[in-house]
């Protein structure tokens, strides 16, 4: 199982490397430091939401609400961050965790299919975001944007530090803590996990709460990036979250995930978006390329792993 996970991670990183090596000579402005910062911030957002999704997937579920959860976070942020950034961030975090708790309650306590309950919370979060911000508006303090994009000798230090912190925290959580191991155990074989004395219900519930909180944090950074609250801005990230998580080695059957692989998967989507944007192709073509890249990465790694 360990080798399998490693290989999938390696494949997605190799594809990323190939994309970068091809892009450097042929795409204009790809190597500028402004673009570097751009890719990293986008990567940070996609990475956080992909991690959120991987927590739901790893216990054998799925979270359809991550996108509107992010929209809601930008809407909340556009009111509160200007007053007090720390309080605003905490409220965003709490809103995500509450949505996650709703999902966990529905999926675990009531026993609804994760698809149904997260469809409900998708609608609810969407409605709340629309209530707060019927139209894009509000303001996020520029200082947050500036510090996220600030470069030191051409290197966007803060986003790199944040990415590394998230990666380390998640790797630690998954591999070194009791909760992380329980998550993998529950996703891998629920019955066996129960026999080992793991509180399966609690672990599953917590997975949804973590997923909701992480998606909200992704929404916080998205709000900082666009500088306002927007009721629909999170929607495309639902697809990115599944794509990045699975391309990075999270299996939809549950029980397996890899924070470093998910980072590779997120980078894949950040790169495709950025390269197509720089080559002045429309968003529409970007969608087609993303679809094809997703199938190729997963299909090829599947073929390689089976050998």
């Amino acid at each position: 199982m360990k080798r399998l996970k490693l290989s999938r991670t390696m494949i997605v990183w190799l594809v990323d490397l190939a994309f970068i090596l091809i892009a450097i000579p042929i795409i204009p402005h790809f190597t500028t430091s402004a673009n570097f910062a751009n890719i990293l911030v986008r990567l940070l957002i996609i990475y956080l939401v992909a991690l959120a999704q991987s927590f739901a997937i790893v216990v054998g579920g799925a979270d359809l609400s991550v996108g509107s959860n992010m929209s809601l976070a930008t809407a909340i942020g556009s009111y509160l961050l200007i007053i007090d950034p720390i309080m605003g961030f905490l409220v965003i975090l709490a809103s995500g965790a509450i949505l996650g708790a709703f999902n966990g309650f529905g999926a675990v306590k009531v026993g609804l299919h994760p698809f149904i309950v997260t469809l409900c919370s998708f609608l609810i979060a969407q409605g709340l975001a629309l209530t707060l911000r019927p139209r894009p508006g509000g303001r996020v303090p520029e200082i947050l944007f500036d510090s996220l994009y600030s470069t030191y000798y051409g290197i966007p230090v803060l986003s790199i530090i944040l990415l590394i912190l998230v990666l380390l925290a998640m790797s630690f959580l998954i591999e070194r803590t009791r909760l992380g191991r329980s998550l993998l155990a529950v996703g891998g074989n629920e019955k066996a996990a129960r026999d080992f004395g793991i509180n399966v219900e609690l672990v599953k519930f917590l997975a949804y709460v973590i997923a909701g909180a992480l998606a909200a944090v992704a929404g916080f950074f998205l709000g900082v990036r666009i500088g306002c609250g927007h009721p629909y801005v999170g929607e495309p990230f639902l697809l990115y979250s599944f794509g990045a998580a699975v391309a990075g080695g999270t299996f939809l059957t549950g029980g397996t995930t890899s924070p470093i692989g998910t980072l590779g998967g997120a980078l894949l989507f950040a790169l495709i978006d950025n390269i197509l944007w720089l080559s002045k192709l429309s968003t529409y073509h970007s969608l087609i390329v993303q679809g094809i890249a997703l199938v190729v990465v997963v299909g090829v790694s599947e073929a390689v792993l089976r050998r």
Partner: peptide, 21 residues
Amino acid sequence: GNVSPFIATLAVSLAEQGITW
């Protein structure tokens, strides 16, 4: 391709949306 249905149909739907737009 042994790609899980979730991902395969998701990718196809992305491509279809791109074509439609």
